[in-house]
């Protein structure tokens, strides 16, 4: 008898080889939980934060959920794609710089080798790295159930801290990103206490310049509201404007005013608000002029 394991209250561990098999188990075993990298769920079950499900369904060996495909610039990332896979993909780095940076600046290498894009989205943590980066690239999620498939805009997928619009029996299968506009640049920035940390504040931005003015623009922030979110007012301000110092400063101020952070053990509400503004301004400076306001 092993002496170091937890008292087991998880009844079974399934390792289906196809997505349909996985979906069938999820239908047949009420309360069964799909796991991808498993990085958070196992810890939460052990420390009692989450109840033990009657069964776990490991998606690790489901081939339909793995791999990245790029067709004519449109990207589909399988839900089981790890952070390391994303970081290592040079074409992704070129097309989706913010996603590349957010995946690279994610935990340590051990975590990046296990954590998946699907897991990061389904956890719906307010401070997750990937959502802001994916939001500025207009990502959607593909949800599969036995009965069919639906595609949901990422903005509508995460509905609250730890809550998504996934229905029982449904699995996040892939993330799709439309072909980026020509000349679109994106970036991701965050505040941490030490290198190995979750974001206290994160900001992603994507800009396509139209001559001397800002053409398309998306700005998103994480850890400063119950869900990662686009900053529509900021985008509104920027669209079609000339990116001078004053504009970027106003964008930062508007961003800081527009978020709803909390105070906790990691940072205060006011610091998060302040840093949202700093990151938005610096991100835009980086994207519009190659760093008029660059930092270290």
């Amino acid at each position: 008898m092993s002496t170091e394991t937890t008292v087991c209250t998880i009844g079974a561990y399934h390792r289906p080889a196809t997505l349909d098999d996985a979906l069938r188990i999820l239908r047949d075993v009420p309360g069964a939980r799909p796991v991808a990298g498993g990085t958070d769920l196992l810890v939460h079950v052990r420390d009692g934060r989450e109840g033990a499900p009657p069964a776990l369904v490991s998606l690790r060996r489901v081939p339909e959920l793995c791999g990245v495909t790029i067709e004519d610039g449109a990207v589909t990332i399988g839900a089981l794609t790890t952070m390391s896979d994303i970081v290592a993909d040079a074409e992704l780095a070129r097309l989706l710089p913010a996603v590349h940076v957010a995946a690279a600046d994610f935990g340590g290498v051990q975590i990046r080798n296990a954590a998946t894009i699907g897991g990061n989205l389904v956890n719906a943590s307010p401070c997750a790295n990937l959502p802001p980066a994916l939001l500025v690239h207009g990502a959607s999620v593909v949800l599969r159930a036995l009965g069919g498939v639906r595609t949901v805009d990422l903005r509508d997928f995460i509905v609250g801290p730890g809550e998504t619009c996934l229905r029982d029996g449904e699995v996040l299968a892939a993330v799709t990103i439309p072909r980026p506009l020509g000349g679109l640049r994106s970036t991701f920035r965050r505040t941490v206490r030490v290198a190995m940390d979750m974001a206290l504040v994160s900001v992603a931005a994507a800009v396509a310049m139209d001559g001397g003015t800002i053409g398309a623009v998306r700005v998103a922030a994480g850890a400063v509201a119950p869900t990662p979110r686009r900053l529509a007012e900021v985008e509104e301000l920027l669209r079609g404007a000339v990116p001078d110092e004053g504009l970027l400063r106003r964008a930062g101020e508007l961003a800081a005013a527009g978020v709803a952070p909390i105070s906790d053990v990691r940072a205060s509400e006011s610091y998060r608000r302040h840093m949202t503004g700093v990151h938005v301004r610096r991100a835009l400076a980086e994207l519009t002029a190659g760093g008029v306001d660059g930092d270290a």
């Binding site: 990298g37 990085t39 810890v43 051990q110």
Partner: peptide
């Protein structure tokens, strides 16, 4: 026991992971 310290690092098929976060049956 929560993936913060790396003391349990092992290689699975050549990739380094935290053994405290990895389901044994995987």
């Amino acid at each position: 026991g929560e993936g913060e310290c790396g003391a349990c690092s092992v290689l699975v098929d050549g990739r380094v992971v935290n053994a405290c976060l990895y389901a044994a049956l995987d």
